Amino acid sequence: MLLDWITVISLVGIGLLLIVVELIFVPGTTIVGILGFILTAIGIWVGYAALGTNTGHLILAATVLLGGLAFFYSFRSDSWARFALKEQNRGRVNEDYQHALAVGEEGKTVSALRPQGRALFANQHHEVQTEGEFLAPNTPIRIIRLSQHKIIVEAIS
């Protein structure tokens, strides 16, 4: 009888601990949370099987109460503040880079465009993209659109 109580308390305790670790330290549904849920369920099942229905109901109620308190405390405390992003990244890529290309300018691909890659215009390498088609290296291309920092090209037929 004592061994049954120790087994139930250990399984439920370790299961709830793993669920709290899942909530606080390992966000998302991972093996830790699933294992915690399984251990808790096994502990409750062992409580019903070994200690009887009435005691099983008490174990289930206590587990739900402890799980709810742990869930409430984990969101109520400032434990999430350590993981929260408090600053905004306002940096931009290639803000200072201004190309001197124009629509209709011709060049050739340096790498395969799938649909993005590198191309050569006026002896300068640029990052370009197609509108979805794949182009092989050394394919003659033409600029069809410039939008912000994107250079959209097409193959010259």
Rank of each mutant, 00 (worst) to 15 (best):
Trp5Leu: 13
Thr7Phe: 04
Thr7Ser: 14
Thr7His: 00
Val8Ile: 15
Ser10Leu: 14
Ser10Lys: 02
Leu11Phe: 08
Gly13Leu: 05
Gly13Phe: 00
Gly15Asn: 06
Leu16Ile: 10
Ile19Gly: 02
Val20Leu: 10
Val20Cys: 06
Val20Glu: 00
Val21Arg: 00
Val21Trp: 06
Glu22Met: 07
Glu22Gly: 01
Leu23Phe: 09
Leu23Glu: 04
Ile24His: 01
Ile24Ala: 13
Ile24Thr: 15
Phe25Tyr: 09
Gly28Val: 12
Thr30Pro: 05
Gly33Val: 12
Ile34Tyr: 07
Ile34His: 06
Ile34Thr: 12
Gly36Gln: 07
Gly36Phe: 04
Gly36Lys: 08
Leu39Phe: 15
Leu39His: 01
Thr40Tyr: 08
Ala41Arg: 05
Ile42Trp: 00
Ile42Gly: 03
Gly43Arg: 02
Gly43Phe: 00
Gly43Val: 01
Ile44Ala: 05
Trp45Asp: 01
Ala49Thr: 08
Ala50Ile: 03
Gly52Ile: 10
Thr53Tyr: 14
Thr53Gly: 05
Thr53Leu: 14
Thr53Asp: 09
Asn54Trp: 13
Asn54Ser: 13
His57Met: 14
Ile59Phe: 09
Ile59Gly: 01
Ala61Ser: 13
Ala61Gly: 14
Ala62Tyr: 13
Ala62Val: 15
Thr63Glu: 06
Thr63Gln: 08
Val64Arg: 08
Leu65His: 03
Leu65Tyr: 11
Leu69His: 05
Ala70His: 06
Ala70Glu: 09
